[in-house]
Design a protein around this nucleic acid. Sequence first.
DNA 1: GTCGTAGTTCGACAGTCACCGTACTACGTC
DNA 2: GACGTAGTACGGTGACTGTCGAACTACGAC
Lengths: 107, 107
Amino acid sequence: MAKTDTLPPIAHPAREEITVEGVLRALADPVRLAIVRQLAGTEQEIACGGLTVPVTKSTLTHHLSILRQAGVVAGRQEGTTRFNSLRRNDLDALFPGLLNGVLAARR
Amino acid sequence: MAKTDTLPPIAHPAREEITVEGVLRALADPVRLAIVRQLAGTEQEIACGGLTVPVTKSTLTHHLSILRQAGVVAGRQEGTTRFNSLRRNDLDALFPGLLNGVLAARR
DNA sequence: GTCGTAGTTCGACAGTCACCGTACTACGTC
DNA sequence: GACGTAGTACGGTGACTGTCGAACTACGAC
């Protein structure tokens, strides 16, 4: 059967394809918000397994997929590991202040 | 039966009770986002009937109730009319930049 | 009192969504 | 090859949510 050469680098929306509503929807969930906070708390990327969330692996995959589709996080594959990072540049360019406002929240 | 003296001025969360997640949830809907945009586009308050939304009255009531409970909009009763306004001060104080970021969005 | 207008409340219904377990693919190591 | 690990895909289920129409309350004008 066909080999997966070049390994399609995951589907991410281009910057112009990101919508506020999608981003807000993605952020409007406690688990995903926790993920975003963890990613925002470090300069480094975090592998799926390195995220602390109160859900199973499959549910985590689901949440990350939503965050990715919304354009909030980017994923980079390296071996069997997928490194996730915040798309801070894109979000700040499109919705200046939004991310900071969300992260500034105490509750 | 008991008269409604003083007319309980609608239930609004205090500033400290507003949560990011609640606000994000409230904003993560096209109809509610449209309402917020209309309220943000003017200095004046807007009555329910003055809002342009593609839903029926009862659905509009529902959306406004969610926005109110989340602390995004305030409602002031005057006769049979309810005037709505954005709680810009509170939102800016709690989540500086969030509202601006959302409103800055072109899509 | 009667009527019209402004909003709310109350089911009901359909669609979406978070969650899980299981099965699967892909890579690295032995 | 066999095995373990990292993450995804699939199917199912229960809960939530946006939508509506109809009935209702509250106020103002006639």
